[in-house]
Write a protein that binds this DNA or RNA. Structure first.
Length: 359
DNA sequence: CAATCGTGGCT
DNA sequence: TAGCCAAGATT
């Protein structure tokens, strides 16, 4: 009895599937347009790929539209003020991406004459562009036959080849498998095709093997273990940290905010002054005032810890100088410029301050 | 190289 | 509800 039934996976079969099922995405040149000679804009490819790092298509769409409307070219983005770019990125997460995005735009504008490098090595040298993004831009924007390996590709390769080595140890093995399948022609379409397949068919939980162009070539499917792959090394449990956030509203409606340090959590973003976040935070009000605990805490979960923030609010007369932070005038302050955890704090504080007005 | 770094949707 | 997951990069 030979395991006869297993085909060899072919790039051509996946490309044929992609020609029929490619999603219509704001940053994508469709396979039809590409065949007709339409060339992708490297700026848009780069921007979308950075936004898509560890982030879903659904979450990225509106941000991509907003950014490309505000800044149609890399030169426009390079010329934008830091605070505006950080504010527009607010809510998307992984804020080092936004800081590196600006750095990268300015290097491309000033040192490359506004044109992105065309090689994987050249791209890799830019801030915020790692192995995946360099290969993806090279393949998608320039149709170079680079090996593009993201989480989707890892999952698809682990299944097609029934690779049971747990991630991240399996990475070299999966990359080798991906390299073996990558075609010389239509590299950009192929890269997007594997990722589309992973996102829409070869999904993490319940893969739709029945409609998969590689069903007949999938070793995991043949073994009935497709939904179990890829294996992953177990994650550490998240500890809970506590903190205190201070929301000061001046008489004229301005709020006291600070720009967080460049490095570390929420680096470069606006935030409420507060205590350190740990097991037993010390109070650290940014000024002397009649601070009132609002009696409700903001809960938020980051990548590696849970956070419970006690919220204290105060109304401050004009002319009181804070120890740290700056007052943002009512007209200049947009809650949407805050990272999500800080926006949660604002929403709760706002409710409490409003009640205070009534009473 | 293991840890750090967000958020929202889904199960 | 609590954990898992997403087109990773950086140190």
């Amino acid at each position: 009895m030979r395991d006869a039934a297993l085909d060899v996976p072919k790039a051509a079969d996946l490309l044929a599937w992609y020609d029929r099922h490619a999603r219509d995405l704001p940053w994508r040149v469709s396979p039809g347009d590409r065949a007709a000679g339409v060339v992708p804009d490297p700026y848009r490819v780069w921007l979308s790929e950075v936004m898509l790092q560890q982030t879903t298509v659904a979450a990225v769409k509106s941000y991509f539209e907003r950014f490309t409307t505000l800044w149609p070219t890399v030169g426009d983005l390079a010329a934008a003020p830091d605070a505006q770019v950080m504010g527009e990125w607010a809510g998307l997460g992984y804020y080092a991406r936004a800081r590196n995005l600006l750095k990268c735009a300015r290097v491309v504008a000033k040192e490359h004459g506004g044109t992105f490098p065309t090689t994987r090595e050249g791209l890799l040298a830019l801030p915020g562009i790692g192995p995946y993004t360099a290969a993806a831009i090279s393949a998608i924007a320039y149709d170079a036959p680079e090996v593009v390996v993201d989480g989707n590709v890892e999952r698809v390769m682990a299944r097609v080849h029934d690779i049971r080595t747990p991630l991240p140890a399996a990475k070299p093995e999966l990359t080798e498998a991906a390299a073996h399948l990558t075609p010389d022609a239509r590299a950009g379409d192929y890269a997007q095709a594997v990722m589309d397949l992973g996102a829409t068919v070869c999904t993490p939980k319940s893969p739709a093997c029945g409609v998969c162009p590689w069903m007949g070539a999938c070793a995991a499917r043949a073994a009935g273990v497709q939904a179990e792959l890829p294996l992953k090394t177990p994650k550490k449990p998240k500890p809970t940290r506590l903190g205190i956030a201070y929301v000061a509203r001046r008489e004229d409606g301005a709020f006291l905010l600070e720009t967080r340090p460049e490095k570390g959590l929420l680096g470069g973003m606006l935030g409420w002054p507060g205590s350190a976040w740990n097991e037993a935070p010390e109070p650290a009000p940014p000024l002397d005032a009649d601070w009132q605990d609002i009696g409700e805490e903001a809960r938020h979960t980051f990548t590696h810890f849970h956070l419970r923030l006690t919220i204290r609010v105060a109304r401050v007369p004009q002319g009181v100088t804070p120890d740290r932070g700056d007052y943002l005038p009512k007209t200049a302050f947009r809650p949407s410029d805050l990272p999500t955890v800080m926006r949660k704090v604002f929403d709760l504080a706002q409710g409490a301050l409003a009640k205070g007005d009534a009473g």
